[in-house]
Simulated scan of single mutants.
Amino acid sequence: MKILLVSNMYPSEAFPSYGVFVQNTEAILKDEGFSIDRAVLTKKTGKAQKALGYAQHYANVVRKGMSGKYDAIYVHYAAHNALPLLVLKKLKPSVRIVTNVHGSDVVPEVASQEKFQPNVKKLLGQSTMIITPSHYYEKLVKEKYQVRTPIRIFPSGGVNAAVFYPNKENNAELMATYKLDPNFRYFGYVGRMDVGKGWDHLLNGFAAFLNEHPEEKAKTRLIMVGSGKDDAAFFELRKRLGLEESVVHFPLMKHADLAAIYNIIDLFIFPTTRKGESLGLVGLEAMACGTPILASRIGGILDYTKENENGWLFEPGNPQDLARGLAAYNKLSKEQKQQVGQAAYQTAQQYEQKTIQSKLSAIFHELRLKK
C-alpha cells in the first residue's frame, strides 16, 4: 500500500523537534510495511519565508497527488493543509484522504485561526477516514462538525521507549551534564512559551507554593524547558515574582535531552489551558521515565491520567489549585511517590510506539478493505 504523507510540520536539522510525532507515524507505517512518500513543510522563520514555503508546499501536495499513484493521502493538521487537498479532491475525486486532526484544527486558539474552520469542515466531510489522538478529541470532532466520516483513535505516534525510559539511578551524572545543583530537588515543565500553554499559571502557582512553604526555597527548584512567542513575557514574570534563582530555564531541547530532564525531575507539571489539547504527549513522555505528573484537568490528558493513581489533576488556569497540588504532593511519603511513579510508567507503556503501531496499521488496512 502506497501512502502520501502530507504535513506542514516536519523535523529538520535546525528544528529537530518540530512535528516529530509526524515523523514518528511515518516510521511506524514504514515498519509495518507501507510505502511512504512525503509532501511536507519544515519550519520557516520570517513572513516571506513562510509565505514562499507554504506556496511551494501547496503546489507540491497537488502535484504529487495528481501524478502519484497513491492508495491514500495521510494528512496531519487539517487547518493548514485543507486548501490544497480540497483542490486535489476536486481535480481528482477518486483520491482517498485520511485526516489526522490535532489541537487548533478543531479548537482555534487565536482569532487568526478561525478563518481555517470552513475548510477544515469541508476536508473532514470529504475524508475517507478521520484519526484523532484521544477519545476526548473524537467527541469534540463529532459534536462540532457532525461528520459521518468514520473516526478512529491513534495517540499521535506514541512514546519512543528507546528514548524515554527510567534512568534515575544516573541522576547525579545527568545533573552535572546540565549544570544543575544536586542539593535541590526539581519539578519540571516542557512546552512552548505561548498562548494556552499555561506557563504563566505555573510560575504564579510555583511562586504561591514557595510563599506558603518558605522552607522549600532552599531545597526546591523548577526547570522550565521551551521557547516561543511569549519568551519576553516569561522572563519578565519570572523576575517580577522573584523566581530568577528558583526557576531554571532551558530553550528548546532534542528528545534525548528532554528524556534526561524528565528523569531528573521528581514531578512533571502540565499546566495547559487549551481545550484543544488533543492528547498531551509530553505528559506521557514524562510518565515513560517513571515521573508522575500534576496536570490540568482538561483535554486528552484525561484519557491517561488517573487521579491519585498515576498522577494528580488541578483546575485549568488556577495557580492556587496548582499550588495546592504541589503542597499535597509534598506531603506524600517517598514510598507513595514511588508507587505513583511506577503506575505512571505502566500507563505510558500502553502508549509505547511498538505497542500501538499495529493500531495505525489496522486503520490503513481497514481503508484498503473499503475499496
Rank of each mutant, 00 (worst) to 15 (best):
P108L: 12
K30P: 00
S67P: 00
D105V: 04
V95F: 07
H57P: 03
F21Y: 08
V110T: 15
V62K: 11
K92T: 06
R96P: 10
R96Y: 06
V101P: 09
R38Y: 02
F21C: 00
R96I: 04
L29I: 02
M66P: 01
L91A: 14
Q56E: 15
K69T: 12
P108G: 05
N81T: 14
T99Y: 03
K69G: 01
L52K: 13
P16S: 13
A14H: 12
I36N: 09
P11D: 15
V22E: 05
N60Q: 15
K47W: 13
D37P: 03
Q49C: 00
S12T: 15
A78N: 01
G53D: 07
V95A: 11
S12F: 09
V20F: 08
K64S: 03
T45P: 00
A79S: 15
T45F: 04
V101D: 03
V87T: 15
A55I: 13
G53I: 12
G33M: 10
I28Q: 15
D105S: 02
K44L: 07
V107E: 10
V62T: 06
I36S: 12
G46Q: 08
A51W: 11
D31L: 05
A72D: 07
S67D: 02
V22N: 08
E32G: 10
G19P: 08
V107K: 12
P11F: 12
I73Y: 05
K89E: 01
L41E: 02
T42H: 03
D105A: 09
K92W: 10
A82C: 01
D71W: 03
V61G: 02
D71S: 10
R38E: 13
L41R: 11
N24Y: 10
H76Q: 06
G19T: 04
P108D: 11
D71T: 08
L86H: 13
H76N: 08
R96G: 05
E13P: 06
N81L: 08
S17Y: 06
V40C: 07
Y74Q: 09
D105T: 01
K92M: 03
I97R: 13
D71I: 05
P93I: 14
D31I: 00
L88S: 06
S104A: 12
K44P: 00
F21R: 04
G53S: 11
G19W: 06
S35Q: 13
V95H: 04
Y54I: 15
P16A: 14
G68N: 13
L83F: 15
V20L: 11
K50H: 10
V87S: 04
S17R: 11
P11A: 11
V110D: 05
S35A: 14
L29H: 05
V87P: 01
Q56Y: 07
K43T: 03
V98L: 05
